[in-house]
Design a protein around this nucleic acid. Structure first.
Lengths: 231, 231
DNA sequence: ACATTTGATATGTACTACATAAATACAATA
DNA sequence: TATTGTATTTATGTAGTACATATCAAATGT
C-alpha cells in the first residue's frame, strides 16, 4: 500500500492546541450565554482559571476573536462583545497569490453569478441620479482606449457603481474584495476579449429597457468570460 | 455642546496593539517575500527578535494567521505557509445572533441575487443524473405538508442540490453558510409565503425549458421573498 | 547497512513581573 | 456646588524565563 493511499485513508491527525480548544470553548460560551453586543465579559484571569489554562493560551484565543471583531478590549474596562464585521476576516485571506487555482476559478464564477443576479434588486432600487452617474462613467471611456490601466479602472468603476446602486453595502464590499481575483483570472488570458454589449448599451437599457433586457444585455457583456468557463 | 456632538467630531482613537501591528507586518512579509505554500518560515524566536517584540506578541499574531489557515505549525519543523480555506474564517462569524440587522438584510439579498444568477452556470453543467436526483427531492415533498421542520429541510435540500449542480464547491459551501441567516430572516415573518412556481415546476423547466424560462421560474418561486424587500 | 540512542531545536504551555490605561473614590480649590 | 487634581485599584498589554514535548539529524552500536 502506497504512502499516498494511507494518507488518503487516514489523513493527518489534526492536533489541536489549547488555544484552538479555548477559542471554540469561548465561542460556544458567548453563544450559550446569549451575550448581546456591549455586554462585559469575564477578565482574562478569570477565564484562564475557569478553563484551567494559562493566561497566555486564553490571550491567543482572545486575539483571534478580537481579529474577527467579535470582541473589543479596553484597558481596565475589560472585554465587551461586539458585532463583527463579517467581511473583515474574508478580506485578510482573499489574495490571489495564496489561493489555490480551483478556488480562484470558483470565485471567478461566483462573481459572474452575482453579476447576472443583480437585475432584480437593481431595478427595485435604481434612481435617476444613479443612472446619470453611471452614464458619466460609461461615457468617460474613450473608445480608442487610453491604455490598459485606464480600461481596467473604468471597468471596475462601472461595475462597482452598479453594485452600489443596489443599495446593498455588503454586496458592494464583497464584490470589491472579489475584484483582485477576477482581475487575476482575466490577466491569465492573452488577448482581452470584449463583449458585444458595451457599458453605454447597458446604461441605455437601464434607462428604457426591462429587467429581462438588462439581464440579457449583461449576459452579452460578460459573454467572453462565460465562454472561458469549463463544462 | 452635547456629548453626542463631541463623539461625532472626535471619535474614539483606535489604539492598535503590538499584536495587531505584528500581524499586519507578517502578512506583508509573506506577501513581499512571495512565499509559496509549503515554504518554511523563520522561527518564532527569530521573528520576535527581528521585530523587537516578545515572543508572546508574535505568538498572538501567528495564532491569528493559523486560525485563518495561512500557516501551519509543526513542532521542531517550524512553520510553513499554506493555502487558507477562504470560507473557514467566514464561517466563524456567520451567526445570525451576532450580526446586526442591516447586514442580515444585506446577506438575505445576497442569497437572492445568487439564486437569480445561477441559471447560466447551471445550464452549462447540469447533467441528466443531477436532474433526476433533484426531481426525487422535489417529489419527496408532500403537498399536504408534513410539518414545518420537514418543509424547511426539504427547501434546503432542493436549493442546496441546485448549487451543487453548478459544480462550484465554493459556491455550494457559501450558500450553505448563508442558510442560517436566510432562515432567520424568513422566520421573522409570521405567515410563510409560498411562490406560485413550485420545486417540481422548476425541475420540469430544467428538463425541457430554456435558461430564461428557468430564471423566470425561479423569480416566481422566490417572489414572496422579493416582495419582502424594501425599496 | 540498519537499528538505536542521543542531542539539538522549535513549538506549546505555564508562570512571574511590570507598564499602562482607565474607572472609582476622594480631596482640593474656585 | 461644580470642577479639577490625586491616589488607588484593576484588567489588559508586553516582556522574559522555564520547561515539556515532538521531531529532525547526527552519532553510535550491532
Amino acid at each position: 500500500m502506497s504512502k499516498n493511499d494511507l494518507i488518503k485513508d487516514l489523513g493527518p491527525i489534526a492536533q489541536r492546541t489549547m488555544a484552538d480548544v479555548v477559542e471554540k470553548e469561548l465561542r460556544e460560551y458567548l453563544k450559550k450565554k446569549s451575550f448581546k453586543p456591549g455586554d462585559a465579559l469575564p477578565s482574562e484571569n478569570e477565564l484562564a482559571e475557569a478553563l484551567g489554562v494559562s493566561r497566555n493560551v486564553v490571550r491567543e484565543a482572545l486575539s483571534r476573536l478580537r481579529m474577527l471583531g467579535m470582541i473589543e478590549t479596553k484597558k481596565r474596562r475589560g472585554m465587551i462583545l461586539s458585532t463583527p464585521d463579517i467581511l473583515g476576516s474574508f478580506e485578510r485571506v482573499l489574495d490571489p497569490l495564496i489561493i489555490d487555482d480551483s478556488t480562484l476559478q470558483d470565485i471567478f464564477e461566483l462573481r459572474l453569478t452575482l453579476e447576472m443576479g443583480l437585475a432584480d434588486i437593481l431595478y427595485l432600487r435604481k434612481t435617476k441620479k444613479d443612472i446619470e452617474e453611471l452614464e458619466a462613467i460609461a461615457k468617460s471611456q474613450d473608445p480608442r482606449g487610453k491604455g490598459q490601466a485606464f480600461r481596467i479602472n473604468n471597468e471596475i468603476a462601472f461595475h462597482g457603481k452598479i453594485y452600489q446602486m443596489t443599495g446593498n453595502e455588503t454586496l458592494l464590499r464583497f464584490q470589491n474584495m472579489l475584484l483582485p481575483i477576477f482581475g487575476y483570472v482575466i490577466s491569465l488570458e492573452k488577448v482581452p476579449q470584449i463583449g458585444k454589449v458595451s457599458h453605454i448599451d447597458l446604461v441605455n437599457i437601464l434607462k428604457n429597457g426591462s429587467k429581462e433586457e438588462f439581464r440579457q444585455g449583461m449576459l452579452e457583456h460578460l459573454k467572453p468570460h462565460f465562454n472561458r468557463l469549463k463544462k
